[in-house]
Design a protein around this nucleic acid. Sequence first.
RNA 1: GGAGAGGUGGCAGAGUGGUCGAUUGCAGCGGUCUUGAAAACCGCCAGGCCGAAAGGUCUCGUGGGUUCGAAUCCCACCCUCUCCGCCA
Length: 430
Amino acid sequence: MLDIRLLRDNPDDVKTRLRHRGGDSWTLVDPVLECDEQRRSGETDRQRLQGERNRLSKDIGGLRSRGEDSSALETEVRGIGDRIKEIGEQADAADIRQRDLLMRIPNLPHEGCPVGADETANPVVRVWGEKPVFDGFAPQDHVALGQSLKLFDFEAGVRISASGFLVFTGAGARLQRALIQFLLDLHTTRHGYREVYTPFIVNRDCMEGTGQLPKFEDDMYGLEDNAFFLAPTAEVPVTNLYRDALLGPGDFPVKLTAYTPCFRREAGSAGRESRGMIRMHQFDKVELVNIVAPEDSFAQLEILTAEAETVLQLLGLHYRTIELCTGDIGFSSAKTYDIEVWAPGHGGYLEVSSCSCFGDYQARRMKLRYKDADGKNRFCHTLNGSGTALPRLYVALLETCQQADGSIRLPEVLHDYLKAKEILPDGTLR
RNA sequence: GGAGAGGUGGCAGAGUGGUCGAUUGCAGCGGUCUUGAAAACCGCCAGGCCGAAAGGUCUCGUGGGUUCGAAUCCCACCCUCUCCGCCA
């Protein structure tokens, strides 16, 4: 949520920056300011009347204690009470409408964010490694590899659930588990994260706090008449651990990591890059969440991104890091880097991590504050990044590590986790 | 699911219709003392909104209600704890 004072003081600047995102969110600025105007004038009137009522009520108390008649005053105060109610209802209605509109306005892109209309304008900021060369054979894609090695089963996923769900089997399931373990170990032991394990079902307050609601309700799996939702990302439960919190300056940086499944309807994604496990309704992810002081947040984004990149480096997977332009950045984000891993069989880069700094946008929505050195309460800044998403990491790993005979030579960092160095052509581990 | 108890400031914990936005303790901040620290003592210390400020106003789990006036009384809901039931 944006600071209403920002809109009051620089409405044109806010509109310009919202326009850079594309869409029509900038058209909400004027209606918000209208509500703000109504709210404040109603509030002023209400407060004046409340003051009057408070004074007269005290007088009544005085009269009564002296045994004098107070009925005339009581009638007057009753009338004031009625007007307070009437004016108050109008002010409250404006307040609710203002908040509702404000919750639908996305964050302002950071000043340094490249201006552009869509993903074609995203600059590449880093490239690590090179596309692997396959000697004497054409690399298979993960669907073919998974089938021949019996690592996962899409039809079983459909039978149990529906399209968009899959079952990992045998060595495939063990590889999945090994990757999760590897990722959590990396972030906890090497990057200083505290691991948390959260519920996968979250309430509306959480979804509003991190910015999935009210705008993206159709993309979420709702339960109990949409009072609860399956978490679309660990960002929601993990960041909301600190909803309504008041931190001290010594609490920073808060660094949390969590493994969770993620549930997304992917409404409107039909036909988009979705072969195999590239876009699922349920997928696993290890998430990184940071809570920091405002002055540190954008520097922290660089660190967070580097931590996510470490995953791919240790696995020996070629990737590139891009910065999202204003037209491609997420709703709550001020600045985002995407990490895209190379998938040789697929023949393209796949987004495995999105690392974002939200400024105080989420903190304001969820009342996440800290007491600064002067004892003043200020909103924290929040960040998160995938560290990383599992399915596409899995795809890139299989496709990069495949051998001419159809086996998979596992990266060294996984050997201990799997008690094996390769997946043989028959799907067994050795 | 049933019965009971309870939800008050960063934390703990008073307060049952009228200077209570709230006693007190701890933590925190400032100061005295000290070479320094500790201890002791003194002072400050909830948040939101309106306002240039002075100040005003709202908030005691949430939402309604009663009343001239509600942290305090009534109703509903949410949550926590204890006991019972059920259960991985």
